[in-house]
Each structure stands twice: as structure tokens, then as C-alpha cells.
Nucleic acid binder design. Structure first.
Lengths: 163, 163
DNA sequence: CAAGTGCGTTGCTTTTCTGGACTGAGATAG
DNA sequence: CTATCTCAGTCCAGAAAAGCAACGCACTTG
């Protein structure tokens, strides 16, 4: 494609997140990472994504600390990519997308991918809860606010890559 | 850009969802919709997105039933776009992205956009909960499964547009 | 020493975005 | 009753990014 979309002048956590995981394929790379994929060839084969694009995605995910390269062989020098804690916490995004797609696109039968909640053993139906009061958040309970004078996405991402 | 990425052969609710909201700008269009934006010119001005791209995005969001055109003037004939129920439920995705970006990209001070949970009056810190047992879902509690023989994303989206 | 594996890079084509000008129906102003 | 303004787009040239396929390189295996 040409993903020229540039959200960097915004000053919003959603826009900043999109700057990290908003490229085409990126979220599917992460999804597969949750399913145990760790190596270039595995992603390439499963997704059918172009090799140069995959290489670019892996590079930026590492740059942003979502994936971490880990050597699994000295000779020949080979490494695999594992999810960092930061990366694992993207499961929240994956789960809500999965939930929405299951409810509104796939029907009852569900899609070819499911998540199990090991704590209770059931297939997970994800809801968003408020960390403060614990209630399930309904769209009508939301109010969005905009504040001025915050760091732009560009500034925030520069810091993020430095870290 | 050139978003040529084609997930349609996949058979996964995440991929299907990406096919609807995975285009650049789309999620920011929806974010602004939650903030009360309803008209072409408003989105265009706020986001600075190219007009043709915005027109294309609005069209596909309508096609997928995320936005609904609603006349607000007969003469001249003008309409605005309002979120459907399906669209409002994308708040879950927005909230988890916002949460991740706030935690991992912006720090304590937060970004320029916040959500308030009207039920408890606090700034919302979104968590993913299991609808079945009510527990907050930790990444480590997840297990992903792949099943065969499900509808492909292409098939599901064709149905969705028909509906 | 020939072929294979894992992980990319390089080059060329195609698709999509960007930016800006332009259109068209109607409202508003003088 | 012509001239400008608003809204909601469309159109077009050019740039940026993805798609595809071939090649490179460092080792290993037969």
C-alpha cells in the first residue's frame, strides 16, 4: 500500500497506538504471536504477507518494544521474536476486536479463531470493565473529553523508541 | 497509502474486523464520532485527512452498518453520519487501544483525549473482563485456538454488506 | 562440494494515499 | 438577480507503500 496516513500531529493515545499497530498486517502478526508463532518463516507462510513488508513490521514492533528478538542458535546466528509484556498487553485490543467481529460479522457459530479463558475454562466473551468500579462499560456510559497542551503523538513515539 | 493488504482468505474474527476498521483514518473517524462529530467537513478539518479518502471511509463504514446517514436538512439536501449500535460497540476497541497507549506510550499525565465512565464518574481505565466469570482477563490466562472449516473473511463480509 | 534452511534485501510493478483544484445544488447578501 | 458562501463531495497528478519474485549470505547436511 502506501500507508502515508500520519496521525503524529494528534495528541491522543488512540492515535499513538495506531501509529504502532495500525499498519496492515501488524495486528495479525501479533495475533499469531499469541498463537505461538515466533519466526519469520512461520509468519510469512501463515499470513502470506510479502517478505519485505513482514521484515519491516517486525522491525518496527521491535523498535517499539512489542516484540523482542531472542537468539535461539549461535551458529548459524538465528533469533526468534517473542512478545514482551507490553506486547502481551495488546491482547486486550485483540480480544475486543475479536469480540466485535464475532458478534457483528460472524454469527453464532463464530470464526476460526477462539480464545479460552483458562481461569474459568470457557470460551472467552470479552467485555470492557472499568478498573475503578469494576462495572461493565456500556457505550452509553462513556463521555469523551479533549484536553489541550498534551504531547503530540510524534513526541511520544520518539520517547518510546528511545526507551 | 496503498493498503493492498488482503486478509480475506483468513477465517478469523480479528481479521474480519480489521477489514472493516483497519484502514488508516477509519478508527480516528470513529473516535471523533464518539466525540460528537457527524459531518464531512468536521472530520475533514479535525483530522486533516484527504477529502477523497474521508469520502471513501465514510462510504465503507455505512456499507458495513457502522455509521448511518441521517438527513438533517431537506433543502439543501444534507445528511450527517451517526453511529449505529454496531458502531457504538466499537467503543470497546477504542477503549482498549486508548488504555494501552496511555499506559505504554503516554505516561502518567495521559494524552489529550480521555474517557469518563459516567456510571462512577471517574476517568476510565479500561480492563478486559470475561463475560462468563466476570474476572479481569490477564494475558497469561489466554489460550488461542484455531478451528478449521469456518467461513472466510470474504464470505462473512459479503453477508455483512448484504444485511 | 552441492543442495537446503532461515532470514532477510533488492528491484520492479501496482495500489492507495496526499494535496489541491474543481463541481454542483442550494442559501445568503447586496 | 448576480455574486459569494456552504456543504459534500469528485477528479487528477504525484508520492509513498504494499505485492511479487528473485537474489544474497551464513551456515548445515548429505
Amino acid at each position: 500500500m502506501g500507508r502515508t496516513a500520519d496521525y503524529s500531529k494528534e495528541s491522543c493515545a488512540v492515535a499513538a497506538t495506531l501509529e504502532v499497530i495500525g499498519d496492515p498486517w501488524t495486528l495479525l502478526v501479533i495475533r499469531d504471536a499469541f498463537n505461538g508463532v515466533r519466526r519469520f518463516e512461520q509468519w510469512q507462510e501463515r499470513l502470506g504477507v510479502a517478505r519485505n513488508v513482514l521484515a519491516a513490521r517486525l522491525k518496527t514492533l521491535v523498535r517499539h518494544g512489542v516484540l523482542e528478538p531472542q537468539a535461539y542458535s549461535e551458529r548459524p546466528p538465528r533469533h526468534e521474536y517473542v512478545l514482551t509484556r507490553k506486547g502481551k498487553e495488546l491482547s486486550a485490543v485483540l480480544l475486543t476486536m475479536h469480540g466485535w467481529g464475532t458478534k457483528h460479522l460472524y454469527g453464532e457459530e463464530g470464526s476460526g479463531v477462539t480464545f479460552t479463558h483458562k481461569a474459568c475454562g470457557h470460551e472467552l466473551d470479552a467485555r470492557v470493565a472499568c478498573a475503578c468500579c469494576g462495572e461493565i462499560v456500556q457505550p452509553r456510559d462513556l463521555e469523551m473529553h479533549v484536553r489541550e497542551g498534551r504531547l503530540t503523538v510524534a513526541e511520544v513515539l520518539a520517547k518510546d523508541e528511545a526507551a
